[in-house]
Amino acid sequence: MSKRWSLRNIILIALIAIVCGVIFWLTSFIYNALTLILTPIGLAPAANDISLGLWIVAGPLAGAIFKMPGVAIFSEVAGAVVEMFLGDQWGVMNVVSGLIQGAGAELGFAVTGYKKYGHFQLLMGAIFTTLITFTWDWFKNGYSSYGAGLLIFLFIVRFISVWIFSDPIPMAINKLLKRSRAIA
């Protein structure tokens, strides 16, 4: 896979993001079911934190496959634009979320100067993503008015979810793809 913004790579990155998005969209009933279950005990936001990983998987995955600067953020934004047109509950805010989530994964690669794309960078990406998205939810989803205990709980749940979908899962998919020789 040449490290270049070639037409083919652009299409592929966008497609990876879209496939992830479509899968998320197909499984959105899980999110809704989770919310339904958690609503009566007032823990609906946890559904958001639990499933966040699924949202952000495209960035680290594309980053790990293509290993070039800007890929993580591009894939998240492209995916978000598509999701916006498919229609879901966040509408146009998808694009903002895409930017924010992509930035997290991107920063993970940036801290080591885009020289390496391994577990450490993915872990860093997970940390940045958790921090940035949590801050955004602080305003957007009213996290600012929760007590400290609940916040810590949500934060930890979110980090675990984000990490699983930032590191082990993209790595595993990447490995399978390599084995299938679909990507060189």
Binding site: N32, T35, L36, L38, T39, P40, I41, G42, L43, A44, P45, A47, G87, D88, Q89, N141, G142, S145, Y146, G147, L150
Partner: peptide, 22 residues
């Protein structure tokens, strides 16, 4: 669709604030 779709997540957020919002 625009009316029905957001109901679940919106209610979730509401109830959660009623329970835990300070």
């Amino acid at each position: 669709y625009l009316i029905i779709y957001p109901i679940i997540p919106a209610t979730g957020l509401l109830v959660s604030q009623l329970f835990y919002g300070i």
